[in-house]
Design a protein around this nucleic acid. Structure first.
Lengths: 117, 117
DNA sequence: CTAAGACCTCACGTCGGCGTCAGGGGCAAG
DNA sequence: CTTGCCCCTGACGCCGACGTGAGGTCTTAG
């Protein structure tokens, strides 16, 4: 598929997809004339990349993990990135959970009475 | 307390605290010579502001919520902000939880074998 | 063959949350 | 009184994840 189709399938913009490639997150083939050609897998890859980005992953961390596909060896650096990011995401998860709880208790009062935030 | 003490008590930098004021998130008193004076409450306020910012709240949303303190009326706009941000944080919570789970399953394999991300 | 799209590569603009000077004022201790 | 530290107001810098042209090329429908 070409870039426009991939964009449509993922909800990303064309510019964003080119940006992901620039950051080493995607490696599409090229036609003789230079147009990018993506496999079907790219859809899931882009969706996953966007999930990670939304969750605060720096694109460099994603790029480092990018090469660990099924049967390959995992490098110590990749292992470090995984531990590091896991810790970060665990902390973020707890923070979000706390904030969400606080909002829910606020919502329990809204509709009737105001509540301080 | 003065700004340096507040910074020490909250882990924020002096610059950050001045920035929060610039965005309407804090309203310290001033001495005759212009120095900022904070009450004890400011510590919790700053901590809460930073929690919200870490959780992806735009500072303008925080500013809009800032005025709804205990006994006051809540405006429709504030109500809207609360619902809106609650939806956002709920979505983010689910996304983070999913990513965390994915990482945990990866971690279950690391140390022994590589696992795709 | 031609015209409309879709695509290409630079390359500068934007936005939020501060960092980081520059240049100057306030204040408690010795 | 002066030394040293904290404080003040601008104002520019930075970084990441794109947006937004400009100016040219490719592809495909008619």
């Amino acid at each position: 598929m070409r870039i426009g189709e991939l964009a449509g399938a993922t909800g990303a913009t064309v510019r964003a997809i080119r940006y992901y490639e620039e950051q080493g997150l995607l490696r599409p083939e090229r036609t003789a004339s230079g147009q990018r050609i993506y496999t079907e897998d790219a859809v899931d890859q882009v969706l996953w990349v966007r999930t990670l980005l939304r969750n605060g992953f720096p694109s460099r961390a994603i790029a480092k993990l990018r090469r660990c596909t099924s049967a390959e060896e995992i490098t110590p650096e990749q292992r470090a990135v995984i531990y590091e990011e896991h810790a970060r995401i665990e902390a973020e998860y707890r923070a979000i959970a706390a904030t969400r709880d606080r909002f829910e208790s606020v919502l329990a009062f809204i509709g009737d009475a105001p509540k301080p935030i």
